[in-house]
Design a protein around this nucleic acid. Structure first.
Lengths: 114, 114
DNA sequence: TTTCGTTATATCTTTATGGAAATAACGGTT
DNA sequence: AACCGTTATTTCCATAAAGATATAACGAAA
């Protein structure tokens, strides 16, 4: 049995802006309010999480997160309304794309049952 | 301006069966009749080309290529009718997927012109 | 001013990936 | 048997990617 997989991502001028991993990270940031906690939940290193955020900032038209360093709880990272909007739109497109491909795989297997 | 990119691939039991690179390689094999010549045309190493073919063979229900080693011209590699069928179907799906996503990207940018 | 938890950054090590090159196997042709 | 061009496979090396660790910066709160 064959299964079809897909990945979609969005690029800006300087490279990848949004992809599956980045959106997952944004979701964890949104629920945790912290980049380090989000990294732990995602089981990736803080460095990797930070570099993902950094690449997003370099490609976004406006910030997808705001970071607060220092402060009463040490600071935190928070998703902006723009970031939330991009997350939702990306996931909507991704969902539609997967549904689309789920139908298409039938054309591969339908004439292929030997 | 954002652009949307996509990759689709098909997996079997033991890993990736067909993807964009593999289909390209099959196409070159089909026109060249040789794995080494196809690798040169694709500007990838013979080793990489061979490992791609090897992974396809491990996942295909029936061979996508037949290899002849030795012989009057040293041998060659040839795409089977099954392989040709898979190539064409993959490219058809990929084409439809890209057209689908080209429309979807509009939903990202339409409300995003600041 | 000390503490605290976070962001920010550098450095070093480890692992993964891929290319280069060398060599064997193969089998029809000569 | 010797030749030839291809497939098949191994070994070695270079580069890239990822992880681990350490440390500085920050600023409100106590």
């Amino acid at each position: 049995m064959y299964t079809i997989k897909s990945r979609i991502w969005i690029e800006g001028e300087a490279g990848v802006f949004l992809g599956y991993g980045r959106v997952s990270l944004l979701r964890f940031i949104h629920t945790e309010g912290s980049l380090s906690k989000a990294a732990k939940k995602m089981q990736i290193s803080y460095k990797k999480a930070w570099s993902l955020i950094d690449s997003m900032n370099q490609n976004a038209k406006e910030p997808v997160v705001i970071t607060v360093t220092g402060g009463n709880n040490g600071g935190g990272t928070f998703v902006t309304p723009y970031g939330l909007d991009m997350m939702n739109k990306f996931e909507a497109i991704n969902k539609k794309c997967m549904a689309f491909l789920k139908d298409e795989i039938e054309t591969l297997t339908s004439t292929d049952e030997h």
